[in-house]
Design a protein around this nucleic acid. Structure first.
Length: 831
RNA sequence: GCCGGAGUGGCGGAACAGGUAGACGCGCUGGUCUCAAAAACCAGUGGGGGUUCCCCCGUGUCGGUUCGAGUCCGACCUUCGGCACCA
């Protein structure tokens, strides 16, 4: 006993085993794939969201993302797919720069060091990454092509510079995209965001709103993620209505989803920023309007857009003409109207819109009911706004129409009079991509006093990011202070000119990296068309759900744009997407240094090895849910691997000789059935990232094998045992790659287990002669019986009625009917 | 306020097309081994009642559909995520 234990302890040395196999894999170049040679029908592009080289160690979240995904990839490889599993680094970005500001270490140096460190850590996971395809976004070999992407968009009018009120983070000293503002705060540093009007670079993602919506129909993504993107894009069908300003030739447009309420418009409201405001304000109102606008700008964005805040506004003195009835209605400005949505002006229908109602009550503006709530009559006064559909009243010849019909009819009439037309609006804004920071890809544009804005010619790329820069943030790009960078010549006229000093949002870098991987070493083109048409779309993309309305949306947009330019022949980058859940601290809170609940993988890997760590992550949580870390639970996996090790080792001598498989006894058949059931279940479950149940099935098979090993030696079917041991190791291989390689070798195999094929199950082996079914009376379980599978319904019915205590339970009852669910149950319905 | 998840033993979680709820594991209880403990192995383990065996209750709450509901429908509660004056 004691010596046996010693043997187990010396042999089962996870650290030694893992290092041994990592070395072998490298020697054998086992995971090197040649993308050129991959066959299209067998390709499997498996991708995790690449990581940011932060200088911190790999945390549990990385492991949870990368480990199980690698398990999936290994499973696919064993199924015969030619798996491409690359890894890289999203290396530009603010943290490196902020770190540089603090420590005076250049971001290039710290980033390179961090990447070096992370590569070592990633190696620990023992994933199949082929590092020859690595991409590092801060290297000129990569960002040259990020700039190329920019130029392609620019050429087609999809990248443009415009003055606009934008989100400004005073802490990060840069502008932010809409998507990077959460609850009015910067999503990086949580500082409150302010609004600034600046001249900035945008990508015209709004031009793809419809395609981005449509594409969601055809991809295998979590429903929740699709819904979130749909809501983010925020498609809204409505009508544009053109108004005139009274006694003037000025016109303006409003957007409404309820043209049926047009007769109820008793005033119109402009956003304070609306350019027409200064033109139409009457002399006597000028002072008040000016004051109001100034005040509005002072209010923090978050407060201004808060739904709780009481609405304010002022009258401009001007009047507008309602195009449907010629009525003269006052023009107000109010901060509840957003300049950034629709046209920045709305028609106010207080009777049928809560916001307008509130505003009208406050400023004593008239309320006119034009839609009758079903069951209400025209004479009873309106106490609160009614915003749903109803019957039109007070609307001239439209009276009596339903809202639905009214929307069509009024829109049609407006169209005939050239006073409006149908219009679709989106909540989505164009993507603001310029940043007033140093550590990013320079925007390849030059400003020439004569030629104006000139894109850098493609053959002059990359526009190198200079190293020698004072990068302390000032609110303007640090590159502005770098004269060697700033001053250049105009590509058109060769006269002195200056470069754009802003850099690109790091989300631009990550919006196309999946296209670069297969061609990572190609210096001629960003991607070889034929090659990436073969390799993409990505077959399985895995990453956190927090990227839904940023990275995932941007990547889809860039892919669609490149498709429309003819560079690629697919429109969606990621055919199938899975989100991993989040691993929380043992206290059920999000891990954070300040809480002191951070689980660091190293200590566990030191103690148990990477296979056990990975297996625990797969077994202890539902993958897409995540959950709280539990120290006690990793012990279970350690225990299981020891059990696995022992049972395999008990039988290794069988592999030294040929063992015939005898005809199967009842015991054999039972064991064999569990085996095939495991194969079936595991295959189905790994495919859909249900690793916890996959491991359960393996445990079941191991348990069954232990039970079998208790029967007398001479009754054991050695041939069958050998087969099952081999299946067992192969089934477990994707989850514990080092561990299973060792056992595979110990059972006499010379080649890597990952060159083996995945076991397939035999439906015949799953078949039983006798099965257990439930007997219910009125749906309540009353008995269980063993029946031969071959029994007919008629026979079964007869058997059930005289089975055990069933007759007694049926005494004095009327049998109404008997429901038989094949191989499952019999339900006797009685009264 | 709007949109979308999720609520199952002491715990992590299963139940794939409405069909025997609680797979697998943790923990716990008992046993074997041991001088003893640990480890390992075996058995039991949703709650309550009478104790071979059986009954009642049980998947957030209340209703409904169905022979049968964790699963479908309606209302509500809790919780998490997203959006939030979007006209």
């Amino acid at each position: 006993m004691c010596s046996e234990r010693k043997k187990l302890m010396t042999e089962y040395n996870t650290k030694k085993i893992e290092e041994k196999w990592k070395k072998k894999w490298e020697e054998w170049k086992l995971y090197e794939v040649d993308v050129e040679k991959i066959e299209e029908d067998k390709k499997c592009y498996c991708l995790v969201m690449f990581s940011y080289p932060s200088g911190d160690k790999l945390h549990v979240g990385h492991w949870f993302n990368f480990g199980p995904t690698d398990t999936w990839a290994r499973f696919k490889k064993m199924q015969g797919y030619q798996v491409f599993e690359p890894m890289g680094f999203d290396a530009f970005g603010l943290p490196a720069e902020n770190y540089a500001v603090k420590t005076k270490v250049h971001p290039r140096i710290s980033t390179i060091n961090n990447i070096e460190f992370m590569r070592k850590q990633l190696r620990e996971i023992g994933a199949m990454y082929d590092w020859r395809y690595e991409v590092v976004t801060c290297e000129p070999e990569y960002y040259k092509w990020t700039q190329w992407v920019f130029l392609q968009l620019y050429k087609r009018g999809l990248a443009y510079k415009a003055e606009a009120p934008v989100n400004w983070c005073p802490e990060c000293n840069t502008v932010l995209a809409n998507e990077q503002v959460q609850d009015g705060n910067c999503d990086r540093c949580h500082t409150e965001v302010t609004k600034k009007s600046l001249n900035q670079w945008f990508f015209r993602i709004t031009g793809y709103a419809e395609k981005l919506l449509e594409g969601l129909q055809h991809i295998d993504w979590p429903e929740k993620t699709k819904i979130m993107q749909t809501n983010w894009i925020g498609r809204s069908e409505g009508t544009e209505v053109y108004f005139n300003i009274a006694e003037s030739n000025k016109t303006f447009t409003v957007f409404t989803t309820r043209p049926d309420t047009l007769y109820g418009a008793t005033y119109v409201v402009f956003a304070p920023e609306h350019p027409l405001v200064s033109e139409i304000t009457t002399v006597d109102r000028k002072e008040e309007v000016k004051k109001y606008i100034e005040n509005t700008l002072k209010i923090k964005e978050i407060d201004r857009t808060s739904t709780i805040k009481e609405k304010t506004g002022v009258f401009t003195g001007a009047y507008a003409i309602n195009p449907i009835n010629g009525e003269k209605i006052p023009v107000w400005i109010a901060d509840y109207v957003l300049y950034s949505y629709g046209t920045g002006a709305v028609m106010a229908v207080p009777a049928h819109d809560e916001r307008d109602f509130e505003f009208a009550k406050k400023y004593n503006l008239p309320v006119r009911e034009v839609i009758l709530k079903p069951g209400k009559n025209k004479e009873t006064p309106l106490e609160k706004p009614y915003a749903d559909a109803g019957i039109m009243v007070n609307s001239a010849h439209f009276n009596g129409l339903s809202s639905d019909r009214g929307i069509d009819k009024i829109t049609k009439e407006l169209e005939e009079k050239a006073k409006g037309k149908p219009k679709i609006n989106y909540r989505l804004r164009d993507w603001l991509i310029s940043r007033q920071r140093y550590w990013g890809a320079p925007i390849p544009v030059i400003y020439c006093p004569d030629c104006g804005e000139v894109p850098v010619p493609e053959e002059e790329l990359p526009v190198l990011l200079p190293d020698n820069v004072d990068f302390s943030p000032t609110g303007e790009s640090p590159l502005k202070k770098c004269k060697e960078f700033l001053n250049t010549t105009c590509p058109k006229c060769r006269k002195g000119a200056t470069r754009e000093v802003d850099t690109m949002d790091t989300f631009v870098c990550s919006s196309w990296y999946f296209l670069r991987y297969p061609c990572a070493q190609n210096s001629r083109v960003p991607f070889e068309k034929e090659l990436i048409n073969k390799m993409l779309p990505v077959d399985k993309y895995v990453g956190g759900p927090e990227h839904t309305c940023m990275h995932l949306l941007y990547a889809r947009f860039i892919t669609m744009a490149l498709h429309d330019m003819g560079y690629i022949n697919f429109t969606e980058p990621f055919s199938s997407l899975t989100h991993q859940g989040m691993i929380l601290g043992p206290d059920h809170f999000r891990m954070s240094k300040s809480r002191g609940n951070v689980i660091s993988p190293e200590s566990y890997i030191e103690k148990y090895g990477s296979d056990i760590f990975r297996c625990y992550l797969m077994f202890g949580f539902a993958y897409t849910e995540g959950g709280a870390w539990e120290d006690a639970a990793i012990v279970a996996i350690d225990r299981f691997l020891k059990r696995f090790w022992k049972i395999v080792n008990n039988y290794t001598e069988l592999f030294q000789k040929d063992e015939e498989k005898r005809e199967l006894t009842e015991e054999d058949k039972n064991l064999n059935r569990v085996r095939h059931n495991s194969i079936k279940g595991i295959t189905y479950d790994i495919e859909r990232f249900q690793f916890n149940t996959s491991i359960s099935r393996i445990m079941e098979l191991v348990n069954e094998l232990y039970k079998y090993s208790e029967i007398p030696q001479e009754k054991q079917n050695n041939g069958l045992i050998k087969e099952i041991i081999e299946d067992l190791i192969r089934l477990f291989a994707p989850m514990a790659p080092h561990f299973t390689e060792e056992l595979w070798e110990k059972t006499g195999h010379k080649k890597s287990i990952f060159l083996e094929t995945w076991p397939t199950y035999d439906p015949l082996a799953l078949a039983r002669e006798m099965i257990n079914i439930a007997v219910q009376i009125n749906g309540k379980l009353r008995a269980q019986m063993e029946i031969p599978v071959s029994i007919t319904d008629k026979e079964l019915q007869a058997e059930v009625l005289k089975y055990g205590r069933i007759p007694k339970l049926l005494e004095g009852k009327n049998i109404k009917k008997i429901i038989i669910v094949k191989r499952k149950l019999v339900n006797i319905v009685v009264t």
